[in-house]
């Protein structure tokens, strides 16, 4: 008996191949499947009987897929208890992705678990001969993600910023980016994924420098394929599940709510 091909809009369950604890709070699942995903895209991860949430893809190498998440809410805490062999459902990939040209010089700014999708972009861009400056930001040293993985990539310099100074620059990763720019480093593009206020700061810097930047924005999502309208942003009405999550900085700056508020499942506004 043969199955019809995996339909991206219908979840299909599979068994987790491997669970890796990145930190106390952060877990990575390795799933034995490829969705043909591109860096920056996301999938919907379903725990049967519980919930389904959007999750950025940390790697899709054509055979295996990886997602990394913080156990912060009920669903992610339930996910963090899963072991190899447990079932999860996935559907996707959804949304826009990061794009670059061969041999470009890229700055990759990753805040918190934004490091995971940024690693996917970095690993693919490195294969295209790009030179990378990766700036990872976290609360403290034990919250740094994918540091060794980034460091193992060719033509890649890893910069660290921690809020408490336990490793690297004490303060924000955006400050490190600003220092690189003011020291005269020219980037072809800047990619950023992390808290929205960090994205605003990156887009400000990029606009000032006249450098193209691509930012990954997050909103409450249900369908993932542009139908329900939960992730539309004011005043453009664009859907971040299909016309995002990766958007150009110039577009993000036309979004009135960028860095200011987001909406819950009822459509009610909440400030960042």
């Amino acid at each position: 008996m043969k199955s019809i091909p995996l339909q991206s809009r219908l979840p299909r369950t599979l068994r987790i191949a491997q669970v890796r604890k990145e930190t106390d709070m952060v877990t990575t699942f390795m799933l034995p499947i490829s969705l043909g995903s591109l860096p920056g895209q996301f999938l919907m991860l379903w725990l049967p009987g519980r919930d389904e949430i959007p999750m950025s893809i940390a790697l899709d190498d054509g055979e295996n897929l990886q997602v990394t998440f913080f156990a912060v809410g009920d669903m992610t805490q339930a996910l963090a208890k899963l072991k190899a062999g447990d079932l999860v459902g996935i559907r996707g990939p959804f949304g826009t992705s990061y794009a670059w040209e061969k041999k470009q010089h890229l700055a990759l700014v990753a805040g918190g678990y934004g490091a995971a999708p940024m690693f996917f972009a970095a690993s693919k861009a490195a294969q295209d001969g790009c030179t990378l400056d990766v700036i990872i930001g976290a609360r403290s040293r034990e919250h740094l993600l994918y540091q060794q993985s980034f460091a193992s990539l060719p033509r890649t310099t890893v910069h660290i910023a921690t809020d408490d100074g336990s490793e690297g620059h004490k303060g924000y990763n955006v400050t490190v980016l600003a220092e690189l720019l003011s020291s005269g480093v020219k980037f072809d593009q800047i990619f950023a994924c992390g808290p929205e206020r960090m994205l605003v700061a990156v887009s400000d810097l990029a606009a000032k420098e006249g450098t193209k930047c691509l930012l990954s924005l997050e909103r409450y999502m249900k369908c993932g394929y542009g139908l329900c309208g939960n992730c539309t942003v004011d005043p453009l009405g664009i859907r971040l599940c299909t016309e995002g999550p990766v958007v150009e900085g110039s577009l993000a700056r036309q979004i009135a709510e960028f860095g200011k508020y987001h909406r819950d499942e009822l459509g009610r506004k909440h400030p960042f």
Partner: peptide
């Protein structure tokens, strides 16, 4: 009055 919806998955499709 405010009305809560159902948890996800809430929308799924085939062709």
């Amino acid at each position: 009055h405010e009305h809560k919806g159902h948890p996800n998955p809430t929308i799924i499709s085939t062709e």
